[in-house]
Amino acid sequence: MSDVLLQSLITGITIGSAYALVGLGFAIIFNVSDVVNFAQGEFVMVGAMSAVSLLAVGTPFVLALFLALIVVVCIGLILEKFAIEPAKSATVVSTIIITIGASIFLRGLALLIWGKDFHSLPAFSGETPIHLGSATITPQSLWVMGITAILVYLVHLFFNRTITGKALLACSANPIAASLIGIPVKRMMLFAYGLSALLGGAAGVLIAPIAFTSYDAGMMLGLKGFAAAILGGLGNPMGAVAGGVLLGVLESLGAGLISSGYKDAIAFVILLLVLFFKPQGFFGRAGEERV
């Protein structure tokens, strides 16, 4: 029994890391603009698929990963510049619908470029599993957890220690006051989309060696990342990370202990329960402010 638990925990933290990165992307854009960017999952898919294609044309491995991230960041910037920014007077709900449209568009584009086949990347450093007592952990899992931890830490430092990070938070707290003190709000929005895309793309290339990817892989990952962000309290970046890992672990425990057929259902049952009973999430702030 305990090896099932340990094994589920390892698998759960690995996949949960990907959810955490996606959730973090949701939280950053939500923080800056109150918009839930439903194209977030497509960033993950584009990251993985671009890396696969770049490798296929003979690009060296590390360079391929790096270029794939650049492709995703460009897509994030293009999305903001040409779909979100022109609709600046639109309400939050309309903007969210624009992101849903963008996600359908990106999925369609991916179908045209890559077809319906499943793809995967080779593992970063071999496939030989490492034994931990009765459970095993693949080297790729360690890459996923390690790089996720580093990225999360950097994002945390960015928001808490740098004036640019705080300026991003200021744009969300009060866009008018932000422009009055000289923060270029438009450029900050662009930056937020670029950063979120980068995190999504990183999640994509990290898990591509573990989970198969296809043109529509972004939808499920996006929804799981959204569930992670909700679980942690939308707009709380570190809450989204905790939510992602928690979701991954619960999902994988459920799959190990009950049935793997319920894996996806578990995520959405949790999402519904949170929305019913604790809509502000587990780490959401109570939003107290004086006017």
């Binding site: 004036i163 705080k166 938070l169 707290a173 932000a178 003190i181 402010e289």
Partner: peptide, 16 residues
């Protein structure tokens, strides 16, 4: 105000 940011951050951001 940037209500959720600290007083020090609010003041510091003025120097953006």
């Amino acid at each position: 105000m940037f209500a959720e940011l600290s007083v020090a951050d609010n003041i510091m951001l003025g120097a953006y």
